[in-house]
Design a protein around this nucleic acid. Structure first.
Lengths: 162, 162
DNA sequence: TGATGTTCCATTGACGCCCATATGGTCCCA
DNA sequence: TGGGACCATATGGGCGTCAATGGAACATCA
C-alpha cells in the first residue's frame, strides 16, 4: 500500500480553506482516520500530516515512557499538545489554523508533499527552496567518496532540511 | 483512543470562569467522568487535568510504591491530596480556584494543552516559552532510546513506512 | 442584607454543511 | 479520429448551527 505519494499545489480561498489532494484523501480513508492529524515539523518550516499510521508511530514512541514524568509530559506535549486535528469537509477541504499558517509561512497557496505514511504541507516557494537545497545536498553526498553505508541519514538525508 | 489533542486558548471572565474546549469536554464525557480532576503539575508551572483515565494513571503510578512508605505518602499527597475536582457548568465552563491560578500564574487567559490521556492548563505566555523547551526535550528524548539510526531527524520516517 | 457563588439567558462570530461553478481529463460513439 | 457527453476534482460562496463569551437572575451563606 503506497500511502501518500507525489506532490500537489492548491490554493486557499478567502476562508482559509484548501482542498486536500484527492489521492491523499483516498489514502486517509483507507487508513481509517476521520480528519487530518497535523503538527509543525520541529526542524522544518513545514507541517507534518497524516492519519492513524502517523499517530501509531507517535504513540509507539510514547509507550516507552511511564506516564506522569517530565519526559513523558514533554513528548506528549510536543506530539499531542502542539498538534491539531483538522476536519475535512464534505468537499475534501480543510481550514489551516493560524498557527499552522504561521509556522509554515503560508499565505495563499500550499504544496502537499507525499512521504509514504505521512505527508508534509509547505508554502510553495519554501518547498522549492527546500527541494533545491535537498538536491544539492544529495549531489554533494553522491559525489563524495562513499562513506559507510550505514550513514545514519538524519541530517544529510534529503528531506531533513536545515 | 486519542483523548485530548491539540491546544486552545480561552479567556476568563470577571468571575474567573473559563470555557473548557468543546473537544475536551466531549472526551471527558466519553471518559465518563463528571467534572474536571486537576492538580498542580509536580514539575511544571502548569495544572494537570483530566478524568478517569488520568486517575487510573495516577493509581497505576502509586501501585509502584508499597503502601505505608514515605514515598507512597508523598506521591499520594502530591497527586491525590492536592487535587481538586472542578465542576463544569451547563455551558461547559469551570471556575479556576485561587491556588490553581497561583500555581500556574494565570490572570485573564488560559491555554489548554492536550496530552492524550490528560491535558494541561497554562498561562498562555508561559506555555509559549515552555513549548519550545518541550519540543527540544522531546526531540532529545525521542532520538535517544529507540536506536534504529535513521531517526535522528525525527522528521525522517520512523522506518515504518508505507 | 450584603457578598459570594451558581444557574440561566443573549449575543456574536466562527465553523460545518450544503450547493453552484470552473476546469481538466476520460471514455464512448459516430 | 474527432467531437461530444460524462465524470472527478478544485474552488467560490450562502446559510444554519454551535461554541465561546458576557451579563442577568437566582440561590446560598455569613
Amino acid at each position: 500500500m503506497a500511502g501518500f505519494v507525489s506532490h500537489f499545489t492548491n490554493r486557499l480561498d478567502a476562508k482559509g480553506r484548501v482542498s486536500v489532494p484527492a489521492t491523499f484523501r483516498a489514502a486517509l480513508v483507507r487508513d481509517g482516520f476521520d480528519g487530518l492529524y497535523c503538527f509543525p515539523s520541529p526542524h522544518l518550516e513545514a507541517v507534518d500530516a497524516g492519519g492513524n499510521d502517523l499517530i501509531a508511530e507517535i504513540q509507539k514512541r510514547l509507550d516507552g515512557y511511564s506516564t506522569l514524568t517530565a519526559d513523558h509530559d514533554s513528548v506528549s506535549t510536543a506530539l499531542f499538545g502542539i498538534s491539531e486535528i483538522l476536519k475535512i469537509d464534505g468537499d475534501g477541504r480543510v481550514v489551516l489554523s493560524q498557527s499552522i499558517r504561521d509556522h509554515a509561512g503560508i499565505s495563499d497557496q500550499v504544496t502537499f508533499v507525499g512521504q509514504g505514511f505521512k505527508f508534509q504541507i509547505w508554502e510553495p516557494e519554501r518547498f522549492k527552496a527546500h527541494r533545491a537545497d535537498a538536491m544539492k545536498r544529495a549531489l554533494a553526498v553522491l559525489a563524495a567518496p562513499q562513506a559507510s553505508a550505514a550513514q545514519a541519514g538524519g541530517d544529510a538525508a534529503p528531506g531533513a532540511g536545515q
